[in-house]
Each structure stands twice: as C-alpha cells, then as structure tokens.
Design a protein around this nucleic acid. Structure first.
Lengths: 153, 153
DNA sequence: CGTGAAATCTATTCATA
DNA sequence: TATGAATAGATTTCACG
C-alpha cells in the first residue's frame, strides 16, 4: 500500500473503474501502453490492495429494493463492548450498505437499502432492540441523483 | 427490467457481486448449474439492465483520498432551472460519489470523497458559488465501519 | 523494462439430445 | 432447455531486444 502509484497506474485504474470487462489489449491501447506492463501493474495493484475486488453494480429497483434511507444515529453509550455489539449488528445485516462513525454531535450514519418503508421499520425495530440508541433520524431518499463507485483519480 | 428474476438468477448475481473475476465454470458449480445456462442468464441480466456494470472497488486511502463527508443540504429554491444547475454541478464533480433528493426538511444528501479538509472546503466554496443554498451541514467520517456494494438478494 | 510470440485457460457458439 | 464439443478470444508466461 505504501507503493507509489504513478500516472499510468491511475489511468489503468480509471479504465478498470469505468469498465472492468475490457480486455488487457483494449486498456493498454487506451492508456498508451502494451499488454504485459499493464498486466504487471494490475497484478501489483491487486496484491498491494489498491484494487480490493472485482464486482458488478446491480440495479436496486430491478431487485425490488425500492427504498433507500440514510440513518443518523446519536447514542449516549461509548463503551467498547457497546461499540462491539453495534458493529456486529451492522455487519450481520445485509441491508446496511454503509456505516460510518462520525465527528460531531451525530455519532453514526448508515445507508440502508430495503424493499419498502415496512422493511425499514423491521430493520429499525431490530436495531433498537439489540443496542441502546439515544436518538435516530431517518432520511428517506426520493431520488438517486448520482451514484458512482468510481473514485476521483 | 420487467423480467422475472428467479432464485437461480439471484444466486448468480450473488456470486458476481462477491467476485466478478470468477470463471463461468466456477459460478456454475457453486450455483448448481452448468456453463451455458449461467452464461445465457448473465447475458440476459446485462441486457435488461439488472447488471449495470463491471467494475473494481479501489482503496480510497491508497489513492490519497483520506476524507469522506456526508453533506446535508437545505435550499429555498425549488425551481426547475435551479435543480437543473444543481444537478449539473454534482454530475460534473468527481468527488461527489452519491447524491440523493430527500423527503423532509433536509432537501439533499451528498457523499463526498476528497484528499483532506482543505479539498472539501474548495469543493464547498465552488458549490455555494455555483448554486444558491440555504443551509449546509457537513458530517465528517472518522471511520468507515462498513462499506459494501453488494445488495441484499 | 517493453515487445511480441507461445501456451494456457476462458468465453462463446453451436450441434445434439 | 441442458449438455458437451468446437471455436474464438483472452490471459498469462516467457524468450528476446
């Protein structure tokens, strides 16, 4: 991870982010290099963890996941074992796509994808029954204006 | 998109989400089918847009993107052309990874990935100079507790 | 270290059941 | 519609410049 990432690496990463199904020849041509060096670099970027995984982006609505909530959480508990349990709950629930610990008066933010409001309520009830939470605000997404996994390079 | 997605489709999608670099033979074996039917289904899922794209997940910190903010936005403007301009600004800025229009008193939430607080401020200044915004709250992530692109299937 | 050829493996097509 | 053979195409390795 401490390896230096140069301009060519970044071009390659950009191509992979945009379309990981491209062939090596295609990527090499676009970044102005050739097959072997591009291959060597991709292998290095995987080994060092810069590339974490190959995946596919799915359409949530096509899968019946019509509702997306951002959940703002305040808690009065900051003990290690409370944190441990909270973290475990989040990890075990596949509807939680993201969870961040925050600076400031809101302690955590979650991004939760579910079928509908009722499914969110089931998640919410399960969450507050498992860990003590002081205050929860749920923000309901009406429209996904932008959504990308491509990091700026 | 109106196509029915059955249990086998979901298994295949689960495997692709987890690791899109697996071979067809490997996926076929895991889901209890064989190469050709799996291939036909994947092709159909791509064509109908259930599978949106092939991509790679990168490590933000390895790329020097150490800061992640969730930005809560209130505006007094709800005109079509204001929205248009706001949307265009978000689309053109690669540091904005997600943007949602919300129900309730907060109008929008953004997820923004940048190098550091200074880079966030540059983004923020650019944003408020381009579109009229009534109120902005930035939530700074201290720790990414969970992050997945895998939708629950 | 880059190039291009060779070998290996995988995706894709297709004939058959 | 599934299977497995046949083809086409990609990845991976390697010898050479």
């Amino acid at each position: 991870m401490a390896d230096q990432i140069d301009a060519l690496d970044r071009k390659i990463l950009g191509e992979l982010q945009a379309d990981a199904s491209q062939s090596l020849d295609e990527i090499a041509r676009k970044v102005g290099s050739s097959k072997t060096p591009v291959w060597t670099r991709i292998k290095r970027l995987r080994k060092t963890g810069v590339i974490r995984q190959d995946t596919v982006m799915l359409d949530p609505e096509a899968l019946g996941l019509e509702a997306c909530f951002f959940v703002l959480i305040r808690t009065s508990e900051h003990e290690a074992d409370w944190q441990q349990k909270f973290l475990h709950t989040l990890q075990s629930r596949p509807e939680v796509l993201e969870a961040h610990r925050l600076a400031g008066d809101i302690d955590y933010i979650l991004k939760v994808r579910v079928q509908n409001a009722r499914a969110y309520d089931i998640f919410y009830q399960a969450l507050i029954s498992e860990v003590r939470i002081y205050n929860v605000t749920a923000l309901l997404s009406m429209e996904e204006i932008k959504s990308t996994v491509a990091l700026p390079l």
